[in-house]
C-alpha cells in the first residue's frame, strides 16, 4: 500500500431495506493515525455504514477498500479490524479473563498471553476480571469489550456510539483508551456518535450524516469557523435546516 493512500476508503455505498434507502451514496476516506467520526441523529444511517465497513453486511452499490483490498475480506483482513457495535453484548457466564483469553486465542493464536495481560491493564478492571461478566455494570462491559478489541492490535477500529449510556468517568476513560491507541499505534478509527461534545474532543475529521446522506465534512474546528457557530450541534441544524 502506498504511504499516501488512505487506510480505508468508502466509495459511494448504498444500502436499501425494502423501499427505504438507509445509506445513500456515502463516500469518505480515513488515513492512518486518524479518528474519523460519523455524526448524525438516530436513524441517520451511522450503524448501517459501520456494519458495511466491518464487513457484516454488504452494500447494494459501491464498495469499501481497506489497506488496498476491496471487500469481501477473508479472515486475514478481518483479523486487522475490530468492531464494537453500540448494543454489543457479552457472554454473561464467562469471567472477564476467560472472555479476553478466548478472543486473544482466536485472533492471535499462540501469542495470546501477553495480549491478555495488556488488555487487563488497558481495561483497568483489576480483580473484577475474575468475576462473571454478567455482574458488570454497562461501563465495565464496554471497557472490557474495548480492551478486548485493542489487545489484538487492530489497524482499524470501528466503534458504534462507544460511550452511549455511560457515565462521565467511564465515557472519559473510553475516549482516552481510543485516542491513546490510535495515536500510539498509527491505526485508524471510525467512530459514530450523536454526542457533539465527544466529537469535538476526539475526532480529527467529521462527516455529518442525515437520512443516509453525508451533508457536510471537515475538521470540527474548520466547520465551526465555516458556519460561524459555537458548537457542532448548530452546524448540524444549519446544514439540515433543523429538520430530520
Amino acid at each position: 500500500m502506498d504511504p499516501g493512500e488512505p487506510l480505508l476508503s468508502v466509495v459511494n455505498i448504498v444500502k436499501r431495506f425494502g423501499g427505504v434507502t438507509a445509506v445513500n451514496r456515502v463516500s469518505f476516506d480515513v488515513r492512518a493515525g486518524e479518528v474519523f467520526c460519523l455524526v448524525g441523529p438516530n436513524g441517520a444511517g451511522k450503524t448501517t455504514t459501520l456494519r458495511i465497513i466491518a464487513g457484516l453486511i454488504e452494500p447494494d452499490e459501491g464498495y469499501v477498500v481497506f489497506e488496498g483490498r476491496r471487500q469481501p475480506w477473508g479472515p486475514d483482513v478481518r483479523r486487522l479490524i475490530a468492531y464494537i457495535p453500540e448494543d454489543a453484548g457479552v457472554y454473561r457466564n464467562l469471567t472477564g479473563f476467560e472472555y479476553l483469553e478466548i478472543m486473544a486465542r482466536l485472533y492471535l493464536g499462540e501469542r495470546w498471553e501477553d495480549a491478555v495481560r495488556r488488555a487487563a491493564e488497558i481495561s483497568g478492571l483489576g480483580v473484577r476480571l475474575r468475576d462473571k461478566i454478567g455482574g458488570y455494570s454497562r461501563g465495565m462491559k464496554r471497557r472490557l469489550l474495548l480492551a478486548g478489541a485493542l489487545m489484538i492490535n487492530p489497524r482499524l477500529l470501528v466503534l458504534d456510539e462507544p460511550t452511549a449510556g455511560l457515565d462521565v468517568t467511564h465515557a472519559t476513560a473510553m475516549r482516552r483508551m481510543i485516542l491513546d491507541y490510535v495515536r500510539g499505534s498509527g491505526a485508524a478509527a471510525v467512530v459514530s456518535s450523536h454526542n457533539m461534545l465527544e466529537v469535538s474532543y476526539m475526532c480529527d475529521r467529521v462527516s455529518l450524516i442525515n437520512r443516509g446522506v453525508i451533508v457536510e465534512s471537515g475538521h470540527p474546528r474548520e466547520l465551526l469557523e465555516r458556519y460561524r457557530v459555537e458548537n457542532l450541534e448548530e452546524v448540524f441544524v444549519r446544514v439540515t435546516g433543523g429538520g430530520l
Binding site: A82, A88, G89
Partner: peptide, 15 residues
C-alpha cells in the same frame, strides 16, 4: 441473540 453477541462472533477472523 438475547446476549447480543452475534456481531462479535461474526467479526471473528474465522470462516
Amino acid at each position: 441473540r438475547e446476549s447480543r453477541t452475534l456481531e462479535l462472533l461474526l467479526m471473528l477472523p474465522i470462516s
